[in-house]
Design a protein around this nucleic acid. Structure first.
Lengths: 260, 260
DNA sequence: TTAACGGATGAATCTTGGC
DNA sequence: GGCCAAGATTCATCCGTTA
């Protein structure tokens, strides 16, 4: 990450309308400006800093990471995805701790991770004082082939709570969600299906405010708008900030003229 | 565990026939008697020492653990399931280290775990020098419903290898297996479906010898017999040893008269 | 309308060659 | 010899189009 990115952090939202607030800046810095006990839920998909056994591979050019050389589709680079596991765990503990402070009592936390970082993330979640409640599996069906081995077909969502859990629905939610990755709908290399996010939001109150320190392509924002929840998004990369802002702004306009 | 159990450990199999060897004794002790580089794969389901946040709950009478108070079905007590997480991790590192020694180069390791112990088990697996390759999800469909929360519907299998992975099949195996738990087919409180085990054995060579230090009700043994693999099972509890021995012995007789 | 087919893709992995 | 960068490689799955 170039130092210039940190230099232009804004502590006020660069976009704010109808329950959607978007901040352009580094998650840790922006989070520090939010007040205690002010959001109802956290749902986010941080950079995994995964992939690659050697440090060199982890720090590979973003355009080559996670993609086959022949894949045609290109995405703007992801920022903050080159940490080694020790630093990554520490960094997660820091932002998860800020989220804990900002969250209201009983707020659920949901964080995406892959198999490789799951143990480290569970440490960070608990180090930041969240009470770990379980693992949700997202079965994405398609995954890279590995001859003679098991495919890494799932990503995982760590589920935790600040203090005592408060139920917001009478139903029992499943522990596995099956949604294919649809390349044509992806805005970001790692975009998650909006329907998956909508399903996860079922643990939050219908009008909850949802904090997402790693907005990326804005899928969580879209799910919040579509389900009537408030959304607080943060994104370091100017490119992805612009993409998400545009996406959410036009979705709001659309929903105004024809509410779901 | 009563010291009496350790006193009667046998270092020679108490049962041996047609590629099936069963030892009655503590896993660590029996493993120490096996020779280096002598088995092709490890597939096992150790006591999770999970369930219960407090030490008191972990150390509850075995028959009450993992079952709600109204559950009618009773099983003989499980032994060796009352460790706290630190000791459990250390203990896993020890027996996984023994397994590593006994395994041939390129041998796959598959170990069942629940969400709570997954991070600790991944530490133990790697501490014992196994190369961690991924997480396989077993979707058991049924799980205790939890109002307003996500159900813990999956158990997990940590997949690792000794040294460099050797493929034994040309196909790419899935990363998720869906098999319901069928209570009436369970011999042990935590019995796994035989078909699930058969699927997992697909990463091993067709005639592989499979080591299982925690035989329990003998599902891994059954899957090995049914798929033509050799099986080395160990079990501490005299009750479960007897149950499994009987089960596998009669299965062998059955397969002799009418091979699959 | 449904079925079949072609084509693209996946939060990689492995091998090889160079420094 | 160790470390690292670059390129080749794998197939189940699903989309979109055609039969």
């Amino acid at each position: 990450m170039s130092p210039a990115y940190r230099g232009t952090i804004s502590m006020v939202p660069q976009f704010q309308k109808d329950g959607v607030s978007l901040y352009r800046g580094d998650a840790l810095a922006v989070l520090s400006a939010l007040s205690d006990n002010s959001v109802d839920a956290i749902l986010t998909d941080p950079p995994y800093s995964s992939g690659g056994v050697t440090l060199g591979a982890r720090q590979a050019e973003p355009s080559h990471k996670y993609q086959s050389s022949e894949t045609k589709r290109q995405y703007p680079p992801m920022l903050g995805d080159a940490k080694d596991q020790r630093s990554w765990t520490m960094w997660c503990t820091l932002w998860l701790g800020e989220c804990w402070r900002i969250a209201r009592d009983g707020a659920p936390l949901m964080v995406f991770t892959d198999w490789r970082q799951l143990p480290a993330l569970s440490d960070a979640v608990q180090a930041a004082d969240w009470k770990w409640l379980g693992i949700i599996a997202w079965d994405k069906k398609s995954a890279r082939p590995q001859i003679g081995k098991f495919r890494q077909q799932c990503e995982f969502v760590l589920f935790a709570v600040k203090g005592r859990f408060v139920a917001h629905t009478r139903s029992c939610l499943p522990g596995v969600y099956t949604y294919p990755v649809i390349a044509t709908q992806k805005v970001h290399l790692t975009s998650k299906p909006v329907n998956l996010i909508k399903d996860l939001l079922a643990v939050t109150a219908p009008q909850a405010s949802v904090l997402d320190p790693f907005m990326g392509g804005g899928s969580v924002g879209e799910a919040c708008i579509r389900t009537g929840r408030r959304y607080i998004g943060m994104e370091l990369s100017p490119e992805y900030f612009a993409i998400s802002r545009k996406r959410l702004e036009s979705l709001q306009a659309e929903c105004e003229s024809a509410p779901e």
